[in-house]
């Protein structure tokens, strides 16, 4: 349960669907670097509900076949350059969606139901390009067409959390979508900022926002595991490192150079 990054990554097969959180909710970037070093291929990355640096790194490194997300962005550091380049080159398949549809789909996954209704979307071109999204009549009330989206049960949920314990329980704070992801996924792999010697589930303050260990397949203690992204309430984003990435990743050559540098190449 408490293991090393290499062992965590070994649990992700080629072609897996991997659900990841938005930049500000704890993307496991150190684990992502390890995935790239391991040469993972054909991943289906699912942003819950968006992704950023994490998807961009994986796309640039050639690990990704499909991006399913409501957005891929470096936030205040601009567009995700490898994502944009891959879309223009036609290197990745797109499953564009909108935030609440993705979150609801993962909630349907955690409930074990086949689909879930979601407001909006009718008349959007997003719907035209998502044959798996359907419009149905509200069975409870006539004359109310509504979109239904299929449940998402990712092969893997992967994220970084502020705190874990020796039993493999993981405390997530306010980022409740991490709990939803763990409930829905077949396998949940987590890096944590710190490891507690106490049982988080037994602690009344931590317990309600703690994912029990039975949902979790690997916990790795990686201090600053989102770097250069920050961890809300714990660490600042490394603005100079993000600016440097956004600049280097603009070109194929610049991104290749980024991959060759520490800590990408080894850490």
């Amino acid at each position: 349960m408490i293991t090393e990054l290499v062992d965590l990554v070994a649990q992700i097969p080629h072609g897996a669907s991997v659900a990841v959180p938005a930049n500000r909710s704890g993307p496991a970037i150190a684990a992502t670097r390890a995935m790239i070093r391991a040469g993972l291929r054909d991943l289906h990355v699912i942003g819950v509900p968006t992704s950023g640096l994490q998807a961009d790194l994986l796309i640039g490194a050639g690990c990704v076949a499909v991006v399913e997300s409501a957005g891929v962005t470096l936030d205040e550091f601009g567009q995700a350059p490898r994502f944009v380049a891959a879309v223009k080159a036609g290197d990745i398949a797109l499953k564009d969606s909108t935030c609440p549809a993705l979150i609801s789909a993962v909630q349907a996954g955690e409930k074990g139901i086949p689909f879930i209704p979601i407001r909006g979307l009718i008349g959007s071109d997003l719907l035209r390009h998502r044959p798996d999204y359907r419009v149905v009549d509200n069975p409870m009330e006539a004359g109310d067409p509504i979109v239904v989206v299929p449940a998402i049960r990712p092969d893997v949920a992967l994220f970084h959390a502020p705190l874990g314990d020796r039993n493999g329980n993981v405390w997530i704070g306010k980022s409740r979508e991490l709990m939803t992801m763990a409930h829905a996924a077949r396998k949940t792999l987590v890096t944590v900022e710190a490891l507690s010697e106490d049982d988080l589930l037994a602690d009344p303050k931590h317990g309600p926002a703690t994912i029990p260990a039975h949902y979790i397949d690997a916990v790795v203690h990686v201090e600053n595991g989102c770097w250069p992204i920050g961890l809300s309430g714990h660490r600042l984003t490394d603005a100079s490192a993000m600016t440097r990435y956004a600049h280097m990743a603009k070109t194929d050559a610049g991104f290749e150079e980024y991959l060759s540098l520490a800590p990408m190449a080894a850490e």
């Binding site: 891929v72 909108t98 979307l121």
Partner: peptide, 21 residues
């Protein structure tokens, strides 16, 4: 002509629901 785009932006985020509601 989606998905063959000349310019790609970040994405829809919550707009395809919030604009309606």
């Amino acid at each position: 002509d989606y998905p063959d785009l000349d310019v790609r932006w970040s994405g829809s985020f919550g707009s395809a629901m919030l604009y309606y509601l």
